[in-house]
Nucleic acid binder design. Structure first.
Lengths: 201, 201
DNA sequence: AGACAAATCTTTCCAATGGAAATATTTTAG
DNA sequence: CTAAAATATTTCCATTGGAAAGATTTGTCT
């Protein structure tokens, strides 16, 4: 069945087109620029069309957030393959995390704001879980607390995540800036405590 | 001049009354429940009254955010006086940070969201600076990287802040939860790397 | 005291928004 | 080929932030 891309009466792929257009609006105008009507206008449909596809504004935001998490995971994994040592992988993932947050601050904000992105959504949950699994892999074997128990592993994951996420969030909200004496903002890597992997230092 | 608290024609203290009512609405109904009209109704004035006092919705949010930072600083300082050792002070401040975030999640969100709270405001800036100074004091002398330079100090501040802020943010956004095997969420203290103060371990 | 200016607050109006409800159009199924 | 399901539109509504102009109170200056 050939796809007729000329003035389809039912468009054929409205949902994806809306998603794409929504992501575009967010990049250019931010979250505040995204309305059902602006989105519909950009795609050339009525303002209730997106509502049909996503149920509500929150539904749209949730779908966008899920797509955000997929791209987020990809960004973190980007440098992972070329990294040789585990420390390099840790560095690559952490830098990917921050890089994505800085490159797409509005999308990142949606992803981590429950009032926008509904975390109970299957779509979001699986995509977010996949993102998180990157951190889990990376933190496995980190000897932060010299222990090798599930308990210690769990705490290490959360510490790692908190550290990177807090850094990215504070950067994006404009809270971190050069200090009074002109000291430059340290990179995420400089902010890390001294880590090493068990048996690899 | 005695204060006539009965049906003032010009109310006398509308700005503070609006602030108080606004904080109340945020506690009970969250940010989404706060509108100029709902706020005005609660105080018994027209919906343009708050606009006169705060310029705009964002102006109102900014004023609320500033008040939030003042209460935030107080919360962090609360346990500081009774703490004897510096480690206890560190613990008290960090726990105060997280406790405030969890007790007032919506207010906390406003404080750290530039789209709500305008950080260029003098009011916000001084209050936020005062909050930050708690962390600065606490992190002074922490031997994380064994150095005693302004540079290392600056990095330590940001690490400490990122860690605590990320943890609080992830908690509030519902991202951190008991893990698959039922492992409980570690406290902020358990998430901390092994810290000590120079010459005090 | 009186008058003019400044502030405070209200009334009225408007455009934009998310959403509900009903209808029209196209596709699919039997 | 027809009924049912899906997709999309039109129309309507309540709510919201804000602009503009007017009313009321307070302050100041002579």
């Amino acid at each position: 069945m050939t796809v007729n891309n000329r003035k389809k009466y039912h468009h054929g792929d409205l949902r994806n087109a809306l998603l794409e257009a929504g992501l575009g609006i967010i990049e250019t105008d931010g979250v505040s620029g995204l309305s059902l009507r602006a989105l519909a206008a950009k795609v050339g449909v009525s303002h209730t069309a997106p509502k049909n596809h996503f149920g509500s504004m929150k539904g749209l935001m949730t779908a966008i957030g899920a797509e955000g998490f997929r791209r987020f995971a990809a960004e973190m994994r980007a440098g992972l393959s070329t990294a040789s040592s585990r420390m390099d992988k840790l560095r690559a993932a952490a830098e990917g995390y921050v890089r994505f947050a800085q490159a797409h601050p509005e999308l990142f904000r949606i992803m981590f704001s429950p009032e926008y992105c509904d975390f109970k959504s299957e779509d979001v949950q699986s995509a977010a879980q996949d993102s998180y699994s990157v951190l889990v892999d990376i933190s496995k074997g980190l000897d932060w607390d010299k222990a090798d128990t599930p308990d210690a592993q769990w705490r290490t994951e959360i510490m790692l995540w908190s550290l990177v996420h807090g850094y990215a969030t504070l950067l994006n909200s404009g809270q971190i800036d050069d200090d009074a004496s002109g000291m430059p903002v340290p990179s995420i890597w400089e902010v890390f405590p001294e880590y090493s992997y068990r048996g690899e230092n």
